[in-house]
């Protein structure tokens, strides 16, 4: 039944900052403040997503791409008259969808965050810009990668001249890499513990 609270309670308890969702008063200031809204990037505004959570529309919410479009500009947080940490709630929902395996693995921002960026940074402990960019461009195949790369070549050359881009993809690991790995391991442990997986 619609407005069965099972899913809402699941989100309130498990999604980061999700318990705030019940306090939304559906004024729509977040929707009007979101720069992605003007670009038509989402189908459901933050407040609509929140109402969908409250209405118990589990699949629609978790498989939605809407929360993946957040640019973290924080306009909504600044403006929310009810002081809801909307940006964080949205990120929480995105992560919860990913953890639940409901998020589309091909969705660009999801794919970028989960695979490309994460792998890149974990490998060396620092962001390798050239590799990161290349992986992003070539994620949809070689032809698409070359096309996108050529489109951005002027920018890349300019950045090279200005020494804002390291041409070599591999610069090696950071100092104290084993410590970095240990930190990550501990973080995973804690997270699993929190989510009851340990």
């Amino acid at each position: 039944m619609t407005y069965d609270l099972t899913f809402a309670k699941e989100v309130y308890e498990n999604s980061e900052e999700g318990h705030w969702i019940k306090m939304c008063m559906q004024c729509g200031v977040c929707a009007g403040s979101c720069p992605m809204g003007f670009l038509g990037a989402w189908t459901h505004s933050p407040r609509q997503l929140f109402q969908m959570v409250r209405a118990g529309l589990r699949d629609e919410v978790l498989s939605s791409t809407d929360m993946w479009m957040c640019t973290s500009c924080y306009n909504c947080i600044v403006r929310c008259p009810r002081n809801l940490p909307i940006t964080h709630i949205i990120h929480g929902l995105a992560r919860y969808a990913s953890v639940q395996g409901k998020a589309d693995p091909k969705q660009s921002t999801h794919h970028f965050a989960k695979d490309i960026f994460w792998e890149n940074i974990v490998a060396t402990g620092r962001v390798g810009e050239a590799a990161l960019t290349m992986k992003l461009y070539f994620k949809d195949g070689i032809g698409e990668g070359i096309k996108q790369g050529l489109e951005m070549k002027d920018s890349a050359l300019g950045m090279l001249k200005a020494k804002r881009l390291k041409p070599l993809p591999f610069r090696g690991k950071i100092k104290g890499y084993p410590g970095f790995k240990a930190m990550l391991k501990k973080a995973f442990e804690l997270e699993n513990q929190k989510e009851g997986k340990a």
């Binding site: 039944m1 619609t2 559906q26 407040r47 209405a55």
Partner: peptide
């Protein structure tokens, strides 16, 4: 339901 923009039934 004007927020979900759909009709809902409830008991």
């Amino acid at each position: 339901d004007k927020l979900l923009r759909q009709g809902v039934t409830m008991e």
